[in-house]
Every structure is written in C-alpha cells, then in structure tokens.
Amino acid sequence: MQSVVKQMFHWMPLVFGIGFIAPLIAQIMAVWQIGGPFGLSRIAVGLVIGVPWGWQTVIRGRWI
C-alpha cells in the first residue's frame, strides 16, 4: 500500500500537468480569445505544454 502511494505521488506532477495545467492553459486561451496554432485545439495546446512540463518535473524534481 505504502509503495503504491509513493508511486502515485512520484508521478503526481505528470498527472497535475494533464489534470490541471492543460485545462488551465486552454481556459486562459479561451478568455483571451487565442486559437491553437497549426489547427490544434486549445486543450491540445494545453496538453502539449502540460505533459512535458509535468514530465520534466517528475525527472528533475522542480517545476522551474
């Protein structure tokens, strides 16, 4: 149980990138009426930013 919880929190930045950062970026783009480049939807742009950002945080241990 303890190792499962540890693993879950280890990957939490990636989940945070998908679960929070991606929709946050999409909503901010919608408020400012910015469309996605190359025909991408706003949520796709959010995921393109949120997933790698969360991934690098898992690896580096720091958001910035």
Binding site: V5, F9, M12, V15, F16, G19, F20, P23, L24, A26, Q27, I28, V31
Partner: peptide, 24 residues
C-alpha cells in the same frame, strides 16, 4: 495523503469541467 488527494481531485475535476481559472 487523503487531503492532498481531495485537493488534486477538486483541482482536476473543476479544471476539466471548465473552471480551471476559478479553482486556481
């Protein structure tokens, strides 16, 4: 652990329902 999971659950749930700025 429970409180952190509730926090994440509320953030993710509201964000994906279109209330990301609000919950932020």
């Amino acid at each position: 652990m429970v409180l952190q999971l509730v926090f994440m659950g509320v953030l993710f749930g509201m964000a994906w329902r279109g209330y990301a700025i609000e919950v932020a």
